[in-house]
């Protein structure tokens, strides 16, 4: 087990290295990262010079630095936890990322829990009562769910479930932007801010995961050990909860393990629509402003997040399935 985790961490480090190369080339080598800044009259020559030096584009004498040297110095900075300074915010990138991380972590946890619980419930129901009205409805809904883009749900929920609902009925169930109403920092207030963004993110994954859960549950229900469990005299409920569900979760956990990237894609849209002060909005802003130190740092941190999440789901999997004992 431990050695497996170590191996995963090592491959993760290799992946991370490869990502640094990709990011470095895309952002600073193929083109000039400062191109857009140079054209802006508001950015002074001094700032440009400072950036050129900070990102090792030019040396102290203003001479261009060779690519390899630039890369090595950049990775060296990275290794020391120095991601540079945002020229727009005039703050260290690490600080910006740290500030944006917690809001996105809330979305992530909310998304993961809501998607997982609902998908498992819907999928299990569909598998236990296949080809019934309920199953067909779930199947149709999931089809719509993963055929509609995330931003559709974002706008739909925001406008109809928050703005229109409040306008027509006067009830304010959900908030349309931000994490908390200033001066009313309570858990219910935070939850009603969180609800719509989480739902937005979860729709597509519920749709997809519930289909996985349904098909793996259908397989499991046909397994011999389910018959054994029934032959013991267990009730249907006990058979499903104790014997079927856990086995049916296994394929789903594998799928979830590679979906952290999908979450990040959805987070851009969701955080933009709901003005959520998280990683997604930080990145979009940085891209809009060509704030490349933030872009590069963000990409590295996001890759680490995707890798770590993959390792965590691996460990969870090995706890769920005793047949997997990595060694």
């Amino acid at each position: 087990m431990l050695s497996h985790v170590v191996r995963r961490v090592l491959t993760g480090i290799v992946t991370l290295f490869a990502v640094t190369i990709v990011v470095f080339f895309m952002v600073t080598a193929v083109g000039d990262p400062l191109a857009e800044l140079r054209s802006k009259p508001s950015v002074s020559q001094v700032t440009i010079k400072k950036l050129e030096q900070e990102f090792h584009l030019k040396d102290a004498n203003g001479k261009p630095v060779p690519l390899v040297t630039r890369y090595v110095s950049w990775v060296g900075d990275l290794a020391q936890g120095d991601l540079g300074t945002s020229f727009h915010e005039k703050r260290p990138v690490t600080e910006l990322l740290a500030r944006a991380m917690w809001p996105t972590a809330q979305l992530f946890l909310g998304w993961l829990i809501v998607s997982f619980v609902i998908a498992v419930l819907v999928g299990a129901y569909s598998a236990i009562k296949p080809y019934t009205l309920g199953d067909r409805l779930a199947s149709g809904a999931s089809f719509v769910g993963f055929s509609a883009p995330v931003f559709f749900w974002a706008v739909l929920f925001q406008y109809y479930l928050a703005i229109e609902l409040t306008r027509i009925t006067g009830i304010k169930l959900f908030y349309v932007s931000g994490m908390v109403t200033p001066g009313q920092d309570t858990i219910p207030n935070r939850l009603s801010h969180l609800a719509l963004p989480v739902m937005t993110l979860a729709i597509a994954t519920i749709a997809q995961w519930s289909r996985y859960e349904r098909s793996s549950m259908l397989d499991v229900i046909r397994a011999d050990y389910i018959r054994t469990a029934r032959a013991k005299g267990l009730s249907k409920w006990a058979v499903i909860m104790r014997h079927a569900l856990r086995n049916a979760l296994l394929p789903l956990v594998t799928v979830i393990g590679v979906e952290a990237g999908i979450f990040l894609g959805g987070a851009f849209v969701t955080e933009k629509v709901y003005s959520w002060p998280g990683m997604g909005r930080l990145f979009i802003k940085a891209i809009e402003q060509s704030d490349f130190p933030v872009v590069m740092g963000w990409l590295i941190v996001a890759t680490i997040f995707v890798i770590v999440f993959g390792i965590i789901t691996d460990v969870v999997y090995s706890f769920l399935d005793p047949r997997i004992r990595y060694d």
Partner: peptide
């Protein structure tokens, strides 16, 4: 393939639209 699958793809697409000259 594994490497590509473990990338934050949308973020890299956005990066490409902004920083890769021919794709701007």
């Amino acid at each position: 393939v594994d490497f590509f699958l473990s990338l934050p793809v949308i973020a890299l697409m956005l990066t490409a639209t902004k920083f890769v000259p021919i794709l701007k």
